[in-house]
Design a protein around this nucleic acid. Structure first.
Lengths: 386, 386
DNA sequence: TGCCGTTAGTTCCATGTCGAAAGAAATCTT
DNA sequence: AAGATTTCTTTCGACATGGAACTAACGGCA
């Protein structure tokens, strides 16, 4: 627990670029890396040598992967030793802490959750410390901790404001560093998920990429040139003022007809409950809509149209190469995907590039994994700043 | 006319970065450039020397500009010799060719327009050649030509499709190069305007920047990281499928309630004409709205709301640091700017960064100037590719 | 089987860029 | 007039880079 790893510094910028390329884009031969980074073959020999000696990279057997029949000397792929470092990611919700351990490549190795019984900052930090200690037993090589919190996070270290925890200016990174001796990064949960998908998920290798999450609230993130665009409102919840349909429903949260009132799980449940008097779970509503029950079907249909409109607007104005729909509320796509697609088409120029839409139902461990990716980034890039 | 200037190559990447910084950001001292480009003072002495010797940069008297009282050796600002090169920009419309000559810094020096009496590609190229020859008499040092055309332009050289000229696959750059001996860049007019504003206008120095033009049609351009995002539909006209208000008017162009049917000059005139039976010019409609005439006021009000909604959506999803409203149809802002602002606020999170909105009424010479900037870019960057 | 073409990777060196440090220049302060 | 301060220049060592020549490992072909 005192393994304080000060990033894999010292790496020269060139070495770091090579390591990053291999980390994100899987096993690559030296000549392939040379092509991707526009470097000479000679430079690659030079840059990879210290990385191989330090054990961060290994030469892997060509074998399975590329079955192309080419002549000439076979290439020698290099790969990151993903297991050489482990990372912890936590997602804090009102009543639970979800934890994961991941490899360098952000594959989840272990899950470990515990109820959160207090919101006192020191007690929460204690609990995170204990959970880390527990995880460290099975994974001795922990290199860093990432923590995702809903709310405003500053400097990747301080929780400026979190309504559900009732925190203001809690120096969470510091508190957990004291207890674990590991470098800690704290970030807004949506931002963390976006970063994770950019490095290792749907947005890997893309220049422009957007993420829209639907769950208890709406989340949105835009990545340009491989970097997430920061924005002022990101930590206070999106979509309350995205008026999708001025004639839409009025719900407790969000303006009339806003994305929040049309799409979030609580709003959909509220609408069905208000219309039918029945308390139904989100899954029951989706099932009911699929089975043709009138009210669930109407609400789900309206939500699907709203989602299609939103996706089209994002495509039209932000022009991402890909949009990822994530969160607990994207089950909507399975039931009403056709309506969404149709609405997107209606709001797009017929000659415009088709929207590349990817759907990924995510649970709380995916959010925790997103936080772990931040710790990976710190190690790789050598800085906690965004 | 045979001065074929093959860009200001040969410049090293470092020299080019310095030249570009001075070109775009005005007179700068060596130490200031060093700070901006994160280079050492020594490097700046080295990099500026050949630029000064070649006559591209000059040392200018400190004088007027910064009246700060500082001690120490006064700085020695360097400036581009903006007049050392001249550029021609053309904007081709259905019945006119608008021409300008600009300096290296894209200041318009001369305007020269001529009616377009034919759409035959060779005859049009002839006319452009004649106009260039005419302009070259007063400006011997022409270094390049930029041409802006409404329609699809490929490779910055070929007009793939232009409905109003009835062109398909016209190698316009080649035709004009043959006649003038100068390097020629052809680009979609909206794209050219966006590039111009990015380098020398409202978007100067910004990382994320959006342009929305309103005129005969709608134009949109997004600049990220200093580079314009290309998109498939840009050359076929935007906004026909941006449904802003599903209950909006139905006009000859655009889907019901689309940006085109709510905002373009022809659609606004159509709506007023359909409701009142009177043919009114755009200016008359704006004046009428300001004076309280019911129908013009209603149409203008609805347009203002649509514009506000669009701007808010662009802000919400593309997150630019600034949005420029340009074109012949932004007179709307003078009459109904308050409604626009109000609508933007209604569609934005109260804590979100305020939208930085700039309005610039532009005429056809501004479009021609945009085209000239492309020629400047080619000279400076040494490539015609986007 | 052995030669050749091809591609991958290595070694070595010339080149060019960079930053650090020290010095020169130009101005203001005291 | 001396010192402080900032700008700019010069010099020099460090170092990343690309290119050339070379070795390595494979398939194709006679």
């Amino acid at each position: 627990m005192t393994t304080r790893t000060a990033s894999w510094l010292p790496l020269s910028p060139g070495e770091r670029a090579v390591a990053l390329e291999v980390l994100v884009h899987g096993p690559l031969s030296r000549s392939e890396i040379a092509r991707r980074l526009s470097l000479s073959a000679g430079s690659l020999t030079r840059l990879t040598k210290p990385l191989l000696e330090s054990g961060l990279l290994v030469e892997v057997p060509e074998g399975a992967a590329l079955a192309e029949v080419r002549q000439g000397r076979p290439s020698q792929p290099l790969d990151i030793v993903a297991e050489s470092r482990s990372f912890v990611g936590f997602k804090i919700t009102e009543d639970m802490v979800y934890g994961v351990v991941t490899t360098l490549r952000s594959e989840i190795v272990t899950r470990y959750d515990r109820p959160l019984t207090t919101h006192d900052p020191d007690r929460v930090a204690d609990q995170l410390g204990e959970m880390t200690a527990e995880l460290a037993r099975a994974h001795p090589g922990l290199a860093g901790i990432g923590i995702g919190v809903g709310g405003l996070v500053q400097e990747r270290a301080v929780v400026g404001e979190s309504p559900f925890l009732e925190w203001r200016d809690v120096r969470l990174a510091e508190l957990v560093e004291e207890r674990t001796g590991l470098p800690v990064v704290v970030e807004n949960d949506v931002s963390a998920l976006v970063e994770a998908e950019t490095w290792f998920g749907a947005g890997r290798g893309l220049d422009r990429f957007a993420v829209l999450t639907i769950g208890a609230g709406i989340g949105y993130g835009l990545v340009l040139g491989g970097t997430r665009v920061p924005c002022a409102e990101e930590d206070r919840g999106f979509g309350r003022h995205w008026i999708v349909n001025p004639n839409g429903p009025l719900t407790p949260e969000g303006a009339r007809g806003s994305a929040v009132s049309l799409l979030t799980i609580p709003s959909i449940r509220y609408q069905v409950q208000a219309a039918t008097g029945r308390e139904m779970t989100y899954e029951e509503i989706l099932a009911g809509a699929a089975a043709g029950e009138p009210m669930p079907a109407r609400v789900v249909d309206e939500a699907a149209r709203a989602l299609g409109t939103l996706v089209a607007q994002i495509s039209n104005f932000a022009m991402p190469q890909k949009i990822l729909l994530a969160g607990e509320g994207v089950g909507l796509m399975e039931v009403a995907g056709a309506t969404v697609e149709e609405t997107i088409r209606a709001h797009r120029h017929p000659l415009a590039a088709p929207v590349h839409l990817e759907t990924k139902v995510s649970d709380f461990h995916d959010w925790a994994r997103g936080a772990a990716v931040l710790a990976i980034q710190v190690l790789v890039l050598g800085t906690a700043k965004a």
